[in-house]
Amino acid sequence: MIRAVIDIIVSIAAGFYTTGRHLFVRPVTESYPEYKRPLPARSRARIILTRDPEGRERCVACYLCSGVCPVNCISMQAAEDSQGRRYAAWFRINFGRCIYCGLCEQACPTSAIQLTPDFEHIRRDILDMVFEKQDLLVDLCGKDPDYDFYQHAGVVVGLAGKGDHISENPPVNTRTNMP
């Protein structure tokens, strides 16, 4: 009983000692606008659309990012260009709604949509927070520099025909029954 009471008193006193000691410790706070800490590449802030190593748009407008977005801030319209590539005719992110959860980046099968550490993009007008494709598109490959989705997809796009992609056999000859 007495031991228990002593324990209680000691533990409470230890708590008071800990907090009290902090009064004489230099705060660890980094004062933000005066000092800007360099953020790691995987930090989640402003979203960009990257390009593949050949400099073409990576986004194929598959709607996965808009489908996974918990706040429905991504909208787009897919279209097909003259080469047969699927691309986004328009692509819009409403950063007024975005919660920077990064699910779009996880869902993206082509590494096109990526979050960057640049978090300072506040605008005074809410409509300026609505970014269109030209605002989002950058001339970089981003975090997955070597990946080119169409090299793996196996659909005919531009000059690459059936069997010309990574890990593909040439097209089957359906006119023969030879083994």
């Binding site: 907090t19 009290g20 902090h22 009064l23 410790v25 230099r26 705060p27 660890v28 706070t29 004062s31």
Partner: peptide, 10 residues
């Protein structure tokens, strides 16, 4: 202010 300092911030 004090709570801040107790928690090692400003």
């Amino acid at each position: 202010k004090l709570l801040g300092r107790f928690q090692v911030r400003y």
